[in-house]
């Protein structure tokens, strides 16, 4: 589904990603871990199409197409979803409007008709149960005055409504209490299907207790320093990132 080859990215003239290789197949869950500042959000943003990132070399192919050629909205319509590490507040746009506008944009792209008000509301009410979110929040401005946990649930709600094929979650688990973490994990697990893939960016192993990844990659200084299975996450939890950082530094020196 997604093939990243030798991806190099600069931000403000500074090399951040320095040769990422990653292959994600439908049905898989990949965890990307790594210390702060290693480039996890940069990778997520580049995949979602944020401006200000200069791809100096490498390629990203998604469903057989060059992902880097598409504007963000087209990537979204083709099924790429990014849950933001820091969800955006939009005073004046109600949550329900956002969901409707987004869903209808997707449906038009897929050649489906727009949902009428009743069907739409029914769909939302179904999905909102999944994230155990208060229905009142639908009628409030997007994320405004939401608690940290509510904001993250809201990202998962958007994901559940839009039904993307490639879900990238950038530290959706950070700062959540255990209940909210379980809700996010349940949300992800319930959306796991054979034709959908996940990239879970996370700083801690905690989320992976609830969502078992097929692969774990460790990002250090803009490169994948190590890949393994779910056990790698446990090892990292125990030993921290220091040993991998030292290992990469030694390799770089040699």
């Amino acid at each position: 589904m997604l093939t990243i080859e030798n991806l190099h990215v600069r931000v403000d003239g500074k090399a951040i990603l320095q040769g990422i290789n990653l292959e994600v197949k439908a049905g898989e869950v990949h965890a990307i871990m790594g210390p702060n500042g290693s480039g996890k959000s940069t990778l997520s943003h580049v995949l979602a199409g944020r401006e200000g990132y200069e791809v100096t070399s490498g390629s990203v192919t998604y469903a057989g197409k060059n992902l880097l050629d598409m504007p963000p909205e087209q990537r979204a319509r083709e099924g790429v979803f990014l849950a933001f590490q820091y969800p955006v507040e939009i005073p004046g746009v109600s949550n329900i409007y956002l969901l409707k506008a987004a869903l209808n944009a997707m449906r038009r792209h897929r050649g489906q008709s727009e949902l009428d008000a009743l069907d739409f509301l029914q769909l939302i009410k179904e999905k909102i149960k999944l994230v155990e979110m208060d229905e009142q929040l639908l009628y409030r401005s997007v994320n405004q005055g939401f608690s940290g946990g509510e904001k993250k649930r809201n990202e998962i709600l958007q994901m559940a409504v839009l039904e993307p094929r490639l879900c990238i979650l950038d530290e959706t688990d950070s700062g959540l209490d255990i209940d909210a973490l379980k809700v996010v994990a349940d949300g992800v697990n319930s959306l796991r299907t054979n034709d959908r893939a996940f990239i879970l960016v996370t700083h801690y192993q905690r989320l992976l207790n609830y969502v078992r990844p097929d692969y774990v990659h460790v990002l250090v200084h803009g490169k994948i320093a190590k890949s393994g299975d779910a056990d790698l996450a446990l090892e990292l939890e125990e030993k921290g990132y220091g040993w991998i950082e030292r290992q990469t530094a030694a390799e770089d020196a040699a």
């Binding site: 909205e73 990014l82 004046g92």
Partner: peptide
């Protein structure tokens, strides 16, 4: 950018935000 990642075209996103501001 956030609105674009939800499938909304850039121009529509700008209008939505301007409208929201008001």
């Amino acid at each position: 950018f956030f609105l674009q990642t939800r499938g909304i075209e850039e121009q529509a996103a700008r209008t939505m935000l301007t409208f929201a501001f008001a």
